[in-house]
């Protein structure tokens, strides 16, 4: 049926350009805006709490057997991504680094078990500690230690799983 596969193209219009003209946004304006972001004094703590609470709920539900792997992924991913994205606006880059480790780990696991839940819980507590202690930037030596701990926990889990699979 040719009619079902037909594709119609609607020409692009320059309607927005006709309305606002062309050119650039002045560099100075962009710099002023970026300064607003970089120097904002808003307290990230209360905002982060909402997302940390979501993570806590996900862990509690998982422990109670109310989460399968897919829903755990979803309920962990959402607050972690929000913490990562919004944390970066407040200079909490360490949160982003830890979030990437956590999200990569959750992508690689194929079923939910107590060890996975324990790793997610450890991650939640680490994030809470970062926010509560206002540990901005990469967190220095402590930040590195936190990252190494989380990577180590994920690695140990994968090794244990492979050992079980091979036995």
């Amino acid at each position: 049926m040719q009619g079902e596969t037909r594709v119609n193209i609607y020409k692009a219009t320059k309607i927005l350009q006709a309305k606002v003209g062309s050119g650039a946004v002045e560099k100075e304006k962009v710099e002023v805006c970026q300064k607003q972001i970089d120097e904002n004094q808003t307290d990230f703590g209360p905002m982060a709490k909402e997302f940390l609470d979501e993570l806590t709920r996900a862990v509690t539900f998982a422990r109670a057997g109310k989460e399968d792997l897919q829903s755990l992924r979803q309920h962990v991913t959402q607050p972690v991504m929000q913490l990562k994205a919004n944390g970066a606006m407040f200079g909490y880059t360490l949160i982003g680094d830890l979030a990437n480790i956590m999200l990569n780990f959750l992508e690689t696991v194929s079923r939910i078990d107590d060890d996975i839940i324990a790793i997610v819980e450890a991650h939640q507590k680490t994030l809470a500690a970062i926010v509560n202690n206002q540990m901005k930037g990469d967190g220095g030596a402590t930040g590195k230690m936190m990252k190494d701990e989380l990577v180590g926990a994920c690695k140990r889990y994968m090794e244990k799983r492979h050992a079980k699979g091979n036995s």
């Binding site: 594709v7 193209i9 609607y10 692009a12 350009q17 606002v20």
Partner: peptide, 9 residues
């Protein structure tokens, strides 16, 4: 603004 794209149905 500068790069309006055609629409496809």
């Amino acid at each position: 603004i500068d790069n309006p794209r055609p629409f496809v149905k």
